Simulated scan of single mutants.
Amino acid sequence: MTERSTPTFAQRVRYIAGGTLPVSMSQWVIRDLTGPGAARRYLLRFLVPIFPPLCLFLLVPGPLWMGAGMMALLYLPLIYFTVALMYVYRRARLVKHGLDPALADHRERERAAADRAAYERRHGRG
C-alpha cells in the first residue's frame, strides 16, 4: 500500500485543529500554508468557527444593536490579531511539521528578487 499524499477527512479535521500530518504529506502542508489561497484558508479557519458562538450575544435581552455591539467588540480584535499573526502562525505550523520555517515567505523573496532584477535591467546593471 502506498502512502497518501493528501489527508483524509479525519486527518484534515485534526490538521485544522492543530495536529500534524505524516511526512508523506509534507508537500500538501507546504502548499496549504504557502501556496495560492493560503491567507484565505487561514482566515476562514480562524474566523468562521467562532462566528456561531458569537451569535449567542444576539439572544441577550435588549436592543439588537447591543448584542451586535458585543459581538463586534470581540470579533473585530480577533480579525485584527488573526491577520497580524498570520506569518507567525504559518512559520510555527511549518516547524511543527518538521519543515523549514523560511518557506513561509519564499514567495515574497522570489518577488523581491524579480523586482531587484528588473530594477538592475532598467538601470543598466544587468
Rank of each mutant, 00 (worst) to 15 (best):
F9I: 04
L59P: 03
G69R: 10
S5F: 03
D100T: 01
P36Q: 13
K96V: 00
V60N: 02
R122H: 05
Q27T: 08
E3M: 02
G69I: 08
A104Y: 09
R125L: 14
T8N: 03
Y42L: 08
G18I: 04
T6K: 08
E108M: 11
F81L: 07
T6N: 02
M70P: 01
A72K: 02
G67S: 13
R122Q: 14
P53Y: 11
M71Q: 11
V60I: 14
E110C: 01
I50M: 12
I50V: 15
P22T: 12
S24R: 07
V48A: 15
R93F: 07
P49F: 03
Y75C: 09
A102T: 06
F81W: 14
T2I: 05
E108N: 01
L44C: 10
R111L: 10
E108T: 05
A112R: 15
G124K: 00
F51H: 06
H123I: 04
E120H: 14
P7I: 05
F46M: 14
P7W: 09
F51S: 06
A112G: 02
G19A: 15
I79F: 14
R116N: 09
R107N: 14
E3P: 00
A117Q: 11
T8K: 05
G19Q: 14
L58V: 01
E108K: 03
R45L: 14
M66C: 07
Y80N: 00
A92Y: 13
V23A: 15
R31M: 01
L99T: 09
T82Q: 06
T82W: 12
A104N: 13
A84F: 08
P101A: 11
V88C: 01
Q11V: 04
M1I: 07
A39Y: 15
Y42I: 10
L94Y: 08
